[in-house]
């Protein structure tokens, strides 16, 4: 109690007249400036106007948002090109984050059941893998999935391609866009994009799930076992419900992180299935040099992420209340 009492006393005691050094104020202002200004600038610029053949100027127009949602030629013509890009951004991010958490969960669960030493070794290895840049990882997967030197080559040489053709699975793969007439083809596909994205965030998934799973009391699962629960039943009726919130939380965090993936999408996604993040970059720095429209797209992406977080918060609260 003494600690609590002393804090209370400190809080209620009159604050001594102390001159705060100017340095502290300046540093605070600088941090605030650096953190908030770019953010506000993007929002403000999103209402600006592009000058053809030149830069852009301050304005207050909703044209950029209109262009995003219904196309530049509205009301004469409606196009959903930009909404479609947002859809692909969501689509890749949802599947990749769910895939990453779904595969990281059993791994992390088993990891927490290992000896302390084994756990530290794995965690160090996983933390180290976080230092790899996105570019490096994408390059690795690019080689692995490329038609001439990667897995497709291995399929062909090992006879797996022929086997797929004989058994009829090849046609199924073609339907899924994972084969060309001659051989399997992994690159430039949703498959490659999602796979690389989940690979990218997989270590994060392990590190996000680790605290919750390592805190899980082993006697909970043992109690369930003594009450007749099979290992599968223990998983579905005790472990998953107990760590439901960390699971949802990790998935959301990774989802928001993946909404902004750039390199992976540029390298692996088909041109027709690019995402908003790529479009933002193209608008701002690419051929069109349309900063206001780029900013508008960035704001939409940001608001979308925020909406998902709010929705998740609401769902969690509701399930808690029940």
């Amino acid at each position: 109690m003494t600690a609590v009492d002393s804090t209370k006393a400190e809080m209620t005691a009159p604050v001594p007249q102390m001159r705060r050094p100017w340095g502290t104020w300046a540093l605070g202002a600088l941090i605030l400036f650096l953190a908030v200004t770019p953010f506000i600038l993007v929002i403000v610029i999103s209402f600006g106007q592009k000058i053809e053949g030149a830069g852009w100027e301050w304005d207050f127009t909703l044209a950029n948002y209109q262009r995003f949602f219904v196309g530049a030629l509205w009301p004469d013509e409606v196009t959903f090109l930009h909404l479609q890009r947002l859809y692909y951004a969501l689509y890749y991010a949802v599947i990749a984050s769910v895939l990453a958490v779904a595969t990281a969960f059993p791994f992390t669960y088993l990891l927490t059941r290992q000896s302390r030493r084994a756990q530290s070794c794995w965690l160090v290895f996983i933390l180290a893998s976080l230092s790899l840049s996105e570019v490096f990882i994408v390059m690795g997967w690019d080689v692995l999935l490329s038609n001439r030197s990667g897995l497709p080559m291995l399929f062909e040489v090992s006879g797996a391609t022929d086997w797929l053709k004989r058994t009829g699975w090849f046609d199924v793969l073609r339907e899924w866009g994972l084969a060309n007439p001659r051989n399997v083809k992994f690159k430039t596909s949703e498959f490659a994009t999602i796979l690389t994205m989940s690979y990218l965030v997989w270590p994060y998934a392990v590190i996000l799930l680790y605290p919750a799973l390592s805190r899980l009391d082993p006697s909970l699962t043992e109690a369930a076992r003594t009450m007749g629960a099979s290992p599968t039943k223990v998983m579905t009726s005790v472990i998953l419900p107990t760590v439901k919130l960390p699971l949802i939380g990790s998935t959301l965090l990774l989802f928001v992180f993946l909404l902004g993936s750039y390199v992976t999408v540029v390298v692996f996604a088909e041109p027709a299935k690019q995402t908003t993040a790529v479009a933002v970059y193209e608008s701002v720095r690419g051929a069109t040099l349309d900063a206001p429209f780029g900013a508008a797209q960035a704001v939409v992406l940001l608001v979308t992420a925020a909406l998902f977080l709010v929705l998740a918060q609401y769902l969690t609260k509701r399930s808690e209340a029940r």
Binding site: E222, A224, R225, T226, M227, G228, A229, S230, T242
Partner: peptide, 17 residues
């Protein structure tokens, strides 16, 4: 295996869900 024994057990930590 434990789940086929039908032995009720109370744990030191109680292990309530």
């Amino acid at each position: 295996p434990a789940h086929k024994r039908k032995f009720g057990m109370v744990f030191q930590s109680f292990a309530l869900f």
